[in-house]
Simulated scan of single mutants.
Amino acid sequence: MPRRPAAPAILPARQALRIVTWNINSVRLRRPLLAELVRHLDPHVICLQETKCPDEHFPLEEIRAFGFPHVAHRGMKGYNGVAVLSRLPFAIRHDDPNWCAKNDCRHLGVELDVPGGPLELHDFYVPAGGDEPDPAANPKFAHKLDFLAEATAWMLGRGPARRSVMLGDLNVAPLEHDVWSHKALLKVVSHTPVEVAAMAAWMAAGQWHDAVRHFVPAEEKLYSWWSYRAKDWEAADRGRRLDHVWCSQDLAGALTRQHILKPARGWPQASDHVPVLVELAL
């Protein structure tokens, strides 16, 4: 595979910073698709979730060959895992919480070196929650609600976000038109009222701004995930918006573009999630 030329280490002033979030569903299985992502979106930063890869087996050199010299990853065998791939230097945040005391590699925070000062970036993979939306009967759903409650309490303790971006596979589709059928999915994990309320509390705790819906009206259907169970995902188009990018209120005015790369769902050996891009003019 030809090596891409390395991008400049410092983002030129007023150039739009392109950040992508993607649940890759196995970084080793789908690392060739990272080249397609880079070709289509040309991001400065890629935040991955569900890398399913222990740190000692992370394909570091192949990823650096795509033009991302700055890489951080937290992974484990078989499931979960997050990573930040960047053309820009960053410092890893080492003191962020160990969510639900599980050490299960669901969060990675960094501080990007960008014009105007460091930008705090948080990559999250929220628990999916299983199939039964009953925390008493389903430990996975209880874990999801506990995770969201801890994240909310953490944000309340920190106060309103400043010069920050929070993103990832948050596994909640909060708005009526973030799912193919609001009525049909009210009792389906990812769109239940208790999850929607928990996400709203998390957003309010940090006074976060929805950077994707900033450009797309709430009454317009918008998805980032289509189930593997559908025989023809594109024809059925029964999607959900599970992948999110939030920015602090002080960055809302810097938003210039969003893009959900829907064709990626049709790539060979595709993830069931597609990349979501947001641009910020810094």
Rank of each mutant, 00 (worst) to 15 (best):
A211N: 11
T21A: 11
V179N: 07
S271H: 03
V114C: 03
R18T: 13
L11S: 14
P2I: 11
P127G: 09
E120I: 00
Q207N: 14
L222G: 09
W226F: 03
D55A: 13
L185S: 14
S224R: 12
K144Y: 01
F58G: 07
V71P: 04
T21V: 13
M76E: 15
R64K: 15
Q258V: 06
R240G: 03
A173N: 13
D272Y: 05
P127K: 11
R265K: 14
P193W: 10
N25L: 04
D232V: 01
K140C: 04
L112I: 02
W246P: 04
W225L: 03
E56D: 15
N171Q: 05
L37V: 04
E279K: 11
L277V: 12
V216R: 13
M155F: 07
H214S: 13
M1F: 10
Y79T: 05
Y79Q: 10
F58E: 08
P263F: 06
L185I: 02
W226H: 12
A149R: 13
L145C: 02
P217E: 09
P2S: 14
V45H: 12
L170H: 08
D210A: 09
L282E: 05
P69Q: 10
A218I: 01
T51V: 08
D243G: 12
L251P: 05
R93Y: 01
R30V: 00
G253R: 08
D237Q: 14
S227M: 07
L280Q: 05
L251F: 02
A7E: 05
C100F: 01
A198S: 15
G116T: 05
R229A: 11
H44F: 08
A65S: 15
A204W: 11
A200C: 04
L34Q: 10
M1W: 14
G81F: 00
H273K: 08
D169I: 01
A197L: 03
W246D: 02
G239S: 08
A151I: 02
M76S: 11
W226S: 12
A72M: 03
V212W: 05
S86F: 01
A204E: 14
Y228I: 01
P139K: 07
K52T: 02
A205T: 11
W154K: 11
E150S: 04
R240L: 08
C53W: 10
K140P: 04
E120D: 10
P135S: 11
P127S: 09
R93Q: 15
G116Q: 08
G253C: 07
R163P: 02
E279Y: 04
R241A: 08
L108C: 07
V84P: 01
N103M: 06
L251G: 11
F68E: 09
L85M: 08
W208A: 04
V165S: 03
A9H: 14
I92G: 09
H70E: 06
F124W: 14
I63K: 06
E111Y: 08
L282F: 07
G109C: 13
A236Q: 15
P97I: 12
A161Q: 06
G67L: 02
W226M: 07
L11M: 11
A161D: 02
G253V: 01
P275D: 13
L156W: 14
Q269D: 15
S227F: 09
V172G: 05
L108V: 03
S248K: 09
G81V: 07
G239E: 12
